[in-house]
Design a protein around this nucleic acid. Structure first.
Length: 558
RNA sequence: UGGCCCAUCGCCAAACGGUAAGGCAACGGACUCUGACUCCGUCAUUUCAAGGUUCGAAUCCUUGUGGGCCAGCCA
């Protein structure tokens, strides 16, 4: 790991060049979300990228809410966003900012532009503005407002601020180039009127700056050196640079764009998730099948696993979609050595050891994680009646089936070898009991080497095991058909995305598990106590991820 | 059909004119008290295509092709 050669991504290369050439001594980056929704895995990339860059170059990372449009923003979201970013491990220390704290400076900046003849008030309505803007292939036309004098513009803009106009009646526009092939440069709107209470500034303002005007100012005020954003803002860079230049900032920030993170077979669109929530297809924005930060946390993902994932994905300008398997790899990798490996029987069937004395119990020693001694050990009661996984017994086994079947011997993990002698079926032909004999000489830890078995299965002691609920998850959407329906754009939902198993048995040591605690359930995967629906007397576990398996039951193959 | 951006293995992604890293996935095999882990091995004679420049091109140029973004008083 220490010797891992990690090649620099293109942003690091730009930064190193900038430092080398003396454009800056160190870096200052920021994550600037609008508080209008919940964060998801895609935002994690941006957060961790910006935070990581600051750390890597000994710089500072800022948290900044880009709250310039009160019609879309809510405090509820600023709180959830802060919580998610903290959880992810991006520490902004005392550098928490709000774009709205700079409204005064932005207003003054606008006045400055007017005085330079670089901005004017327009009384065109929204529809007219659109008409005048032209199209992708035709240039726009001059706004009649351009003929106003500086004094008149100053007065009008002040009137806008004073609340003398209705929403939409007037806007402030930059004077750039109505014929530019880049539509963002066709006299973009700088300020609009919105009589609306802002979550931070209340009713102090009734004019609000547009993103394109506000963002470069925010960056410049905070001394951001590299303003990292996603690809769709590439066309805005000339405008970003124009604002910074016209306002004559001394250390102009540099905007750099990278490609967003997309995951395969995952739903991130706000509209879609909203619909899923409303139709009760998912259990809120933190449903474990979603990839919002809150959902990943609830599912049992760790910040470390997400950090690693983002790191592994890399940063480039190519639009791409990362395989979900990569995320699974990262969480398995993170939990592998950190978590106890316990036994849980998800789909139980009784196993009776006929030659084990009735009523007797012995407490077996079991290491919690054979690959990490620091995790210690626990005792597991062992007795005559156990539960084993229904899948681990077959009356007529296929080839290469190493588990229990009549006449076959397997190891009960942490316990003894048992040999299947017989089984019992009900009237419908379902196996209800498997009967075995055990060999006392084969006790775990005894050093027995007399013979070997091919299979080791897990179990839970019937009288001592605790019943619980386990939820298994698959992709929310159909992997075969693709995420979206080609006809109407709706989601191709996977009907099996959630399976609830209510009749599961866990070994007694697991009874004390608290919300967010996670474990490996041996041979099954990693599981986490659900933070929403679990209680101490009715535990609910979420499967975070299954273990990899090179064996498929033949029945599953068809 | 205006402008900007992108194209390297199934999926990410390096390579910066000197002869295609790495990870995920997959597939063999060894090991195994998890059919897990670990280990060992396989996996791009070729970089969207065609031309050109060069002793030498994934890298530079040209022309195509494919994909993304832009016509909010959203960010």
């Amino acid at each position: 790991m220490e010797n891992e050669v990690v090649s620099k991504n293109f942003i690091e290369q730009i930064i190193e060049e900038d430092i080398k050439e003396g454009h800056c001594e160190t870096v200052r980056t920021r994550f600037p979300p609008e508080p209008n929704g919940y964060l998801h895995i895609g935002h994690a990339k941006s957060i961790l990228l910006n935070y990581g860059l600051a750390k890597e170059y000994g710089g500072k990372f800022h948290m900044r809410f880009d709250d310039t449009n009160p019609t879309k923003e809510k405090v509820e979201f600023v709180e959830s966003i802060k919580e998610d970013i903290k959880w992810l491990g991006a520490d902004w220390e005392d550098r928490l900012f709000f774009a709205s704290d700079y409204f005064e400076q932005m207003y003054e900046a606008a006045v400055k532009l007017i005085k330079k003849g670089k901005a004017y008030v327009s009384d065109l309505n929204a529809e007219q503005i659109r008409e005048y803007r032209g199209t992708l292939t035709e240039p726009g036309r001059e706004d009649p407002g351009t003929s106003r004098s500086i004094e008149e513009n100053l007065t009008l803009f002040n009137n806008m601020k004073e609340g003398k106009y209705e929403d939409g009646a007037m806007v402030l526009r930059a004077r750039i180039d109505m014929a530019s092939p880049n539509i963002n440069m066709r006299d973009p709107i700088l300020y609009r009127v919105a009589h609306m209470t802002h979550h931070n500034t209340g009713d102090k303002w009734c004019i609000y700056p547009m993103y394109d005007f506000a963002h470069p100012i925010e960056d410049a005020i905070e001394g951001i050196t590299h303003s990292v954003c996603t690809l769709e803002f590439e066309d805005h860079r000339p405008l970003y640079d124009w604002v910074v230049r016209e306002l004559e900032y001394e250390n102009p920030p540099k905007q750099i764009e990278f490609a967003k993170l997309y995951l395969t077979n995952v739903v991130t669109g706000k509209r879609y998730i909203k619909k899923l929530v409303e139709e009760n297809i998912v259990d809120g924005w933190d449903d474990p099948r979603l990839v919002s930060i809150a959902a990943l946390r609830r599912r049992g993902f760790t910040p470390e696993s997400i950090q690693r994932f983002v790191e592994l994905c890399g940063v480039s300008k190519a639009n791409s979609s990362v395989d979900y398997a990569m995320l699974e790899y990262c969480i398995r990798e993170d939990l592998k050595l950190k978590r106890p490996r316990m036994m849980a029987v998800l789909n139980p069937i009784k196993l009776i050891i006929d030659n084990y004395p009735e009523g007797e119990v012995e407490y077996l020693d079991a290491a919690n994680n054979l690959e990490n001694e620091e995790l210690g050990s626990r005792k597991i009661p062992f007795c005559r009646e156990l539960y084993i996984e229904r899948e681990d017994f077959m009356e007529e086994p296929p080839r290469k089936y190493f588990r229990l079947f009549p006449g076959n011997e397997v190891r009960l993990m942490h316990a003894y070898f048992v040999k299947c002698e017989s089984f019992v079926k009900d009237e419908e032909g379902n196996v209800t009991e498997v009967h075995c004999t055990y060999d006392p000489e084969t006790k775990a830890g005894s050093g027995f080497t007399g013979r070997k078995v091919k299979g080791t299965i897990h179990w839970a002691p019937a009288p001592y095991a605790k019943k619980c609920e386990v939820r298994l998850y698959e992709n929310l959407v159909d992997e075969e058909k693709g995420v979206y329906n080609k006809e109407d754009g709706s989601l191709n939902l996977n009907p099996d995305s959630l399976s609830i198993l209510k009749d599961c048995y866990i070994e007694p040591a697991l009874a004390e598990a608290e919300p967010y605690d996670s474990f490996q359930f041996v041979r099954q995967g990693f599981f986490c106590v659900d933070s929403k629906d679990s209680s101490s007397d009715a535990l609910v576990f979420n499967r975070i991820v299954s273990l990899k398996s090179s064996y498929k039951l033949p029945t599953q193959n068809q």
